[in-house]
Write a protein that binds this DNA or RNA. Structure first.
Lengths: 263, 263
DNA sequence: CGATCAGTTGAGAATGGTCAAATTCGGTGG
DNA sequence: CCACCGAATTTGACCATTCTCAACTGATCG
């Protein structure tokens, strides 16, 4: 499935060489098209947001909580995490954005960033300034609706995460979280039903799931020993998809829309 | 402070009698104006969303998870809650919207509602259909940006809530949650620094904070005995504001913007 | 080949949950 | 006005999930 990504990247390169070919296969364009039928103007305007290409090394903090005038980014390749730190040094990871997602969209809509964003692996992004996005909205107003929809989708994921933390046991949480991550990765061709590559450490999982790293380790061992799923050496293997679904009480309604809502 | 609400309501009535006077003091209009400087057309278009007035009794479920073609609502008066149910009958409350907030905005952006919304007290709302809001965006495109900002603000609150559940102890959670609720209510004139009216039961708090009702009771007793805050008979009294802030490590950056960002 | 970082495991402690039973309180009907 | 009802709150006793601390393994890297 990773072929799709390669195709996407390839079209991007072609687009740079020949501006007439639209980079429709950029993961963000594809995602937004699922909600709003985009005109050529819309797509061109959107493609202009992909201009300022940047590369960051693993561990680089691209947005810092409290920072003013932060940029946002569109993730093309690699893994990132958005998180908040507490005064006592604890960290709560909000989300691991996947390619096609915005990084720090809220930080350009607010005067100061309310969260931090860090590269988990080396990543490739486009930088988006406040003026870029506001200009884009005024040239192609339907993009604002499309981005609103993308933000609503992000919110739905955060809400699922909230339910994880509030009302699921450690095991259910882990199963649900990894299953949802897999579903999102599948949409961009980075996972299939059997599993996916996952560069996250057990510390990442701990800080995302509100657990201690020690307990994450124990939960993963339990899930592995029960033949449910295996998280090892950067690979997630969904050993028993049916039982994971059952354990996680998983529901993907908000992920698949089945055709644009706004024509 | 509740005078402001009365003035707002009063202007609304005038607006109905004399369409030339804009209901600028509707809490939603006021909130959006804090981010986007709205033109007369913008405000008129927005005001058209307030047309379909509805009243619901306490306990009425206005949006049900899984429902297709659900409406959204704008809350004018009363308390509501948005939540998700788990298969085992547990409930996780996502948010208690306050006047000026959307109820179920995601449920009209998605084909099926990903959460439920219920009236906690008797409430007064405006019903907003999918077509209403999409029409509004096409006549007054800046409204889409404004609503995107409002959605981002909602998301920031949910993120704070996520941090509550993931990385704060029961006491910190309670303090943070009530302080944040108070701050939001202050913005619509329903609270001051000393406290606010709060019709929520301890079961509501338990389901919002990921605790059991029994433990909520114990935590509230502890906070009361320590002279920090009192939650009793529908009143929240912030006995020692400084210590609550300290306990909650509270930060309201995302709530106050200090003037429109988009002119 | 030490150093460092991720992962692993055990033992004991703590936060918060469950179950069960009072108690208070705001209605509501007599 | 009073008795009563149901819902919300309160408290105690016991339990379990998860945390903390501490030690150890294994891989990777300059």
């Amino acid at each position: 499935m990773s072929l799709i990504i390669c195709i996407g990247e390839h079209l991007m390169s072609i687009a740079y060489e020949n501006p007439r070919i639209l980079p429709v296969e950029s993961p963000l364009t594809r995602k937004l098209s699922a909600f709003v039928a985009l005109s050529d103007t819309d797509e061109e305007t959107l493609a202009r947001l992909y201009r300022r290409r940047r590369t960051f090394q693993a561990g680089h903090e691209m947005i810092h909580e409290g920072q003013t005038k932060a940029s946002a980014f569109i993730l093309f390749d690699g893994w990132a995490s958005s998180y908040k730190m507490l005064p006592d040094g604890e960290r709560q990871i909000i989300d691991f954005p996947v390619p096609g997602d915005f990084l720090g969209l809220r930080s350009i809509l607010f005067r100061t960033a309310d969260h931090s964003v860090e590269a988990v692996t080396d990543i490739e992004v486009s930088e988006v300034l406040e003026s870029d996005i506001l200009d884009a909205f005024s040239t192609a107003p339907r993009l604002a609706t499309a981005v609103l929809w993308a933000a609503a989708r992000d919110e739905a994921m955060i809400v699922e995460h909230l339910v994880d933390l509030g009302r699921r046991t450690a095991e259910e949480r882990m199963a649900h979280f990894l299953l949802e991550l897999g579903a999102r990765l599948q949409l961009v061709g980075m996972a299939d039903k059997t599993g996916f590559e996952c560069p996250l450490t057990q510390y990442h999982l701990a800080d995302a799931l509100g657990l201690s790293a020690v307990h994450v380790n124990r939960v993963l061992r339990k899930l592995r020993e029960d033949g449910i799923l295996t998280f090892q050496k950067g690979h997630v293997i969904l050993d028993d998809f049916a039982r994971i679904r059952e354990l996680a009480a998983f529901d993907t309604t908000y992920l698949d829309q089945g055709g644009p809502l706004l024509r």
